[in-house]
């Protein structure tokens, strides 16, 4: 009963969006609303990104493909969240995040063979980076949209959503401060790997994939180091208390 009461789902008129992960409803996390007209236009526009990059001409082409006049473009440009170019980038990020989810939800995916949490993390980051491959030449300019001051909030939000997704799929069950530090470090790993990838000319981005493994291993080591220091600190604190107690007893 309590659980069902805790699941408060924000219902908009066009479907269900939630801001957290539900263990009971693994496929209910709707990242892209595929029914809305804007998202149909933008999804179609993604096909043109390898050709034109993250430019509004992709949207124009998508609208023409759908058989409408250029007037329909106003339905995208009038959206106050940002320029058409930014919306295209933002939509692209969401679609890729959705793709990553589908990969995890698929029972036949090789993902389920991996047991270790950190191996899962680096597997997911590498998969997500592979989605960049078809548009890698256009990606730099698109990423540039995300750090424009006006857009940076949404860009960061989407990045943290991605690291939250990855941590959740990897099986993170932390409920202390580690919850935040894990996600923040994943975000920084993801961003640095993506930037590495933009410069990477090795075949099949091998160097990028190694880079991800090293970085994730780094988080793991850091986590272990933190735990060791914590244990050592606790041991010493208890020893100190005991020492004081014994001194007091002696008078």
């Amino acid at each position: 009963m309590l659980k069902s009461r805790l699941i408060s789902v924000a219902r908009s008129s066009r479907g269900v969006t939630r801001s957290y992960h539900s263990v009971d409803h693994p496929t209910s996390n709707q990242i892209v609303n595929s029914k809305s007209v804007e998202s149909k236009i933008l999804t179609k526009a993604l096909d043109y990104i390898p050709k034109f990059g993250f430019e509004s001409i992709c949207i124009t082409q998508a609208i023409r493909d759908m058989g409408y006049a250029d007037s329909l473009e106003s339905s995208v440009t009038s959206n106050p969240i940002g320029t058409p170019e930014f919306q295209l980038m933002y939509h692209w990020l969401k679609v890729q995040r959705q793709n990553l989810e589908q990969l995890v939800v698929d029972p036949k995916s090789e993902f389920h063979q991996i047991r270790d949490e950190y191996d899962r993390v680096s597997y997911l980051i590498k998969k997500r980076l592979e989605f960049n491959v078809p548009i890698i030449n256009k990606l730099g300019k698109g990423l540039g949209q995300l750090v424009v001051p006006y857009n940076i909030n949404r860009g960061m939000e989407e990045l943290h959503n991605l690291s939250d997704d990855i941590s959740f799929y990897a099986g993170d069950r932390s409920n202390d401060f580690a919850w935040y530090s894990k996600r923040l470090s994943l975000s920084s790993v993801y961003v640095s790997s993506e930037l590495f990838m933009l410069q990477d000319s090795s075949p099949e981005f091998k160097k990028t994939m190694e880079f991800v493994d090293n970085k994730v291993q780094g988080i793991n080591d850091l986590g272990n180091a933190y735990n060791n220091v914590e244990q050592w600190g606790l041991f010493n604190a208890i020893t100190l208390v005991n020492l004081i107690k014994s001194q007091l007893l002696r008078g």
Binding site: T60, D70, S74, S78
Partner: peptide, 14 residues
């Protein structure tokens, strides 16, 4: 915001 107008390459004015 409307950013309306016939884009280059369109076959019909608005």
């Amino acid at each position: 915001r409307l950013d309306a107008g016939m884009r280059p390459g369109s076959n019909r004015p608005l």
